[in-house]
């Protein structure tokens, strides 16, 4: 009985430590800078983290299976180019399409890329690492063939609205989209059969299969969710930078994965939550934003992020070792 209670306490430590760390960061920055704890800056942080956040939530599904997706950033760029080009009528001599149709087509292409990766992983038994690396190169190739690496300017307002528009003239649309994705994902993982089966497969795929769970189907769906959310992030990114750029995703390959792991999602699968991922995204976002305010350059920001990631993962390993 005692050991049980002790175990529960330890699980709490893992859950609470990132929250405490985030609080310490916020308090430290609020005291040491003038503008950190202001509405403007907090909204600014929200805008900065939304894109990484959406991708991180998507990749959480894949990491929960004990797999990884390396195609996130390229799918973001590719989707941005698809949605921009379609809305301007740049490809295959087509006329400009309505923005809503461009968005739907882009999301479907994103979903297809995930379905291919998922099929390769679940059915052909190619490790997710390799399957998504291949998808990454293919997407990059297709994107460059399609666009000649030329940026696309003059996008319709209805398209850039999603990344840079405001609701009621005050709340950035991008943050609202992020929150909707977050709430939906946490409901799916916690309260649906699909979600529970993802944990079962990630925890022990063989046991899940022997329990009659259709492992192949669920794995494919998880990859589809991941890449579709990356495509969504790509559509938002177009709005944030105001143009279609083939380099839009640069530097975002690993950030979402890092955020999920920082939030306590185990790379071995079966363990982690969307809440944790949100915390991970917030910690990384706040850390960088505050350092920016303190006048630190990108070199310091990068170094600090590395340290935090290192410490967090080492801490999680130490605690889970004690529990085992």
């Amino acid at each position: 009985m005692k050991t049980n209670a002790a175990k529960r306490n330890k699980i709490d430590i893992v859950a609470i430590t990132p929250v405490l760390f985030l609080l310490v960061l916020v308090i430290f920055y609020s005291v040491s800078t003038n503008n950190f704890f202001s509405i403007t800056n907090l909204i600014n942080i929200g805008r900065q983290i939304s894109i990484t956040g959406i991708m991180a939530i998507g990749v959480t599904f894949v990491i929960l299976l004990g797999e990884i997706d390396l195609s996130l950033a390229v799918i973001l760029s590719f989707s941005g180019m698809i949605v921009s080009g379609l809305s301007l009528g740049r490809y295959f001599g087509m006329n400009p399409m309505p923005v809503w149709l461009c968005i739907i087509i882009t999301l479907i292409i994103g979903a297809l890329l995930g379905a291919i990766a998922g099929f390769a992983n679940a059915k052909l038994r190619i490790p997710g690492f390799m399957a998504t690396l291949a998808i990454m190169y293919m997407s990059k190739g297709l994107m460059l063939m399609l666009t000649d690496a030329q940026p696309l300017f003059g996008l319709p307002k209805q398209l850039t609205y999603w990344g840079s528009g405001y609701l009621f003239d005050s709340i950035p649309v991008i943050i609202v989209v992020f929150l909707i994705v977050f709430v939906a994902a946490s409901i799916v993982l916690k309260h649906t059969v699909f979600g529970r089966n993802i944990y079962a497969i990630g925890g022990n795929a063989v046991a899940a299969r022997m329990s009659g769970i259709n492992v192949v189907k669920y794995k494919i769906i998880a990859f589809v969710i991941c890449t579709t959310l990356s495509a969504l992030a790509g559509i938002l990114m177009v709005g944030r930078i105001g143009s279609g750029q083939v380099t839009a995703g640069e530097g975002l390959d690993m950030q979402p994965i890092a955020a999920a792991v920082l939030g306590g999602t185990s790379l071995m699968g079966g363990k982690g939550t969307v809440w944790g991922t949100l915390l991970g995204v917030l910690i990384m976002g706040v850390l960088v934003n505050g350092l920016n305010m303190l006048g630190a350059g990108t070199e310091v920001q990068s170094l600090a992020t590395g340290f935090v990631l290192f410490a967090a993962v080492a801490f999680n390993m130490a605690v889970s070792k004690k529990n085992a």
Partner: peptide
């Protein structure tokens, strides 16, 4: 151990 249980569940 290998096929029956999911240790984290």
């Amino acid at each position: 151990k290998g096929e029956g249980i999911v240790p984290l569940m």
